[in-house]
Amino acid sequence: MTTAEMIVSYAVWLALVVLCVSFLLTVWRVIRGPTLPDRVVALDMLTGIVIGFIALIAIRTGFSLYIDIAISLGLVGFLATVAFARFILSRGGRETPRPDMMKTFTASVPEPRRKSATRRPPGTGPAVRRKAKK
């Protein structure tokens, strides 16, 4: 192993470790981000970090074909961010603030609908009104 190869090898290892740390920090923002645009920004950043990983693997293995993969991943990430921006614009401000983080994970489970039974006093439902018209 020549000196040049050793320099590149050590630098690749160090850069991989630093990229791992920044990847984990960005994932933490994706998990914690209080609003949807925060998560989209963090996902955009995540594609950038993965492009960096691909570049480091390209240096480590010597395949320059990985550059094309990195460019196409950048294109996909850009299009995804643009699509997310359009989605945020069309969705409107319908985000409810969540009191704690665990509700984020349980929010996908739909709650049973009991609104009609609790809010409406008996004898005023649509079926009762239809009967009264007859």
């Binding site: 190869e5 630098a11 160090l14 630093v18 990229l19 920044s22 960096g52 240096i59």
Partner: peptide, 25 residues
């Protein structure tokens, strides 16, 4: 050796910028 040093500096600089971005995020 010069080329390897330039490559190593570019790599470490890029990883450092990514780390700064993640900390800022």
């Amino acid at each position: 050796i010069l080329l390897a040093t330039i490559t190593a500096l570019l790599m470490l600089g890029g990883a450092g910028f990514a780390l700064v971005a993640a900390i800022g995020l």
